[in-house]
């Protein structure tokens, strides 16, 4: 139960901590907005957990996957906006991204904790596992903050942030395939012999860049377009801005 709690904590909580770190470094969001976003996310997750049976039965039993897909797409679109547009001053938007992103992740972990909280022999391993998992997540978040905070070239931070959000939204493909809303064309290749999904590196790479040992063409194309979209949109926006400025200079 102890190891299991740590693994579940890493799977569900690590993406949240990575997101907090990236938003702090890339957008420069103060902790107050991030904490408020986190708190709102936890409250919304509590509502989801309290209504878990109803939500899970929506759309012929596909409710939970649809809710998770919706939150991931919303969080992605808002994060992409941060990449496309001028990121300064968008602190509240960063807070909203955190709130939306936290909902499915913390709800999943809460299902585990709430389900086993009242078992007398499970309490101590869960508390210990949560403490260990929390410690690892905080360590990774601080490490990421320090490493990316020291990077002088902003485009590298932007790329890291974009890779993370693209990796997260690509999970929508897996969720929709699971509920038969999307066909499963099968894997293009299998790299499990090098880095398997269940290994520590597999878990970490999954969180950071959406790594899949055996990705399907749908998964890869979603990941690719989700990564490309904010950069192309940003390039178009900057180009049109330059065009406007040069037109104004020509007029004067």
């Amino acid at each position: 139960m102890l190891i299991n709690t740590v693994i579940l904590f890493l799977r569900d909580a690590l993406p949240i901590f990575v997101l907090l770190s990236l938003l702090r470094v890339y957008v420069g969001t103060p902790w107050i907005q991030l904490s408020l976003g986190f708190a709102v996310g936890i409250l919304l997750a509590a509502v989801v957990v309290l209504n878990q049976h109803i939500i899970s039965q929506w759309a012929f039993g596909a409710g939970y996957e649809l809710l998770k897909s919706l939150t991931l797409i919303c969080a992605y679109l808002m994060s992409a906006w941060l990449v496309i547009n001028n990121r300064s001053g968008a602190f509240w938007l960063a807070g909203v991204v955190v709130a939306i992103f936290v909902v499915p992740r913390s709800a999943e972990f809460s299902v585990f904790v709430v389900g086993f909280w009242f078992q007398k022999d499970a309490l101590i391993p869960i508390v210990l596992g949560t403490t260990l998992g929390l410690g690892i997540c905080i360590s990774v978040a601080i490490l990421l903050d320090v490493v990316l905070g020291g990077v002088k070239r902003l485009y590298l931070v932007r790329l890291s942030f974009s890779l993370f959000i693209a990796g997260q939204v690509a999970n929508v493909v897996l969720l929709l395939q699971q509920i038969d809303w999307l066909a499963d064309p099968g894997p293009l290749w299998n790299m499990s012999a090098f880095v398997s999904d269940e290994s520590e590196y597999g878990h970490l790479l999954k969180v950071l860049i959406g790594y899949e040992a055996a990705p399907s063409s749908y998964y890869l194309s979603t990941l690719f377009f989700a990564l490309l979209l904010p950069f192309v949109s940003r390039a178009i926006r900057l180009s049109s801005q330059r065009h406007k400025i040069s037109n104004l200079e020509n007029q004067t």
Binding site: F60, G61, E65, E108, V111, G115, Q178, D180, D184, A214
Partner: peptide, 18 residues
């Protein structure tokens, strides 16, 4: 990991996985 599936089945409930 091999099937790429992950689904919560609540207590005394059922769930479908394709």
């Amino acid at each position: 990991f091999e099937l790429n599936r992950e689904k919560v089945v609540f207590g005394n409930a059922k769930a479908n996985v394709y």
